[in-house]
Amino acid sequence: MSKTDTAIQVTGLQMRYGAHVVLDGVDFAVHRGEVLVLLGPNGAGKTTIIEILEGFRGRSGGSVSVLGSDPEHADEAWRARVGIVLQSWRDHSAWRVRKLLDHFGKYFGPYSTDERARPVGTDTLLQLVGLTDHAHKKVGELSGGMRRRLDVAIGLVGNPEVLFLDEPTVGFDPKARREFHDVIHRLADLQGTTILLSTHDLDEAEKLSDRILILAGGKIVANGSADQLRKEFSDQTEVIWTQDDQRHVHAGSDATTFARNLLAQHPEGITNLEIRNASLEDTYMTIVQTHETTPSQKEGKQA
């Protein structure tokens, strides 16, 4: 196995169902210890990419390597190094939280190494996701937010080198979302786990990611940190001011010059002058709209 810094390597990934192209030549790499967020509108193919990387789905073309193996043909030892956060809803509802984590942990025992002890102790996991006080509860009795935290704990029980999370916060209220983000932050500091997470929530991508990939129309259309994306894709700046009790907005790339001229022309009467960089949201909308070329991609498999 290679000792390289690359945990995930995707080259020319293709996926189509008949004539319907879902992924059209996707390339990216994820470094070890990196938190990469796959961002894109519904139907962009995020779930498809993640399922291919998890080894749950075949592909039409291209090459994929996760921890040095092709997920489609990887063995159980590989499986033990990969963590998957699935979204539970009814499964294992009769199990008690602690018992379930104990049981699932046992699957990883035979794959423990000196570098990475497996499984992670149940108490450690419960503490990490904040379920210590609910360890005795039945899974079916947990609230939605708690249940999702249990999902994360299950994904982590094998002390994975790579962790996949597909739209982990769909349906969360703000509090649950916040708590979930805290868990992910704690995780990334733990043992340098590589994390690949998908979301259509821009805010979330900005909060959690080291790097963001934006997926639209079956392609990666942007790749970089939130700041880089902002700079690269939008030089738009807004100048906002009030004059004679009226609010004015000017959008353009010439904010400084514009403001200087504005003040020169109206030495008095300009109040509440504000210069604002385009938000990441504007950037995101710009990028996605530019690339939303395939009208055939409606609600469907990738939701």
């Binding site: 998890e54 749950f56 159980e76 030892a77 499986r79 033990a80 998957i84 699935l86 979204q87 539970s88 809803w89 009814r90 499964d91 294992h92 699932f104 699957y107 990883f108 035979p110 794959y111 299950i154 994904g155 094998g158």
Partner: peptide, 14 residues
């Protein structure tokens, strides 16, 4: 349907 099988699949030898 409820994902029990999928969870088993995500475990080594599951």
């Amino acid at each position: 349907e409820d994902g029990t099988l999928l969870r088993a699949k995500a475990l080594p030898q599951g």
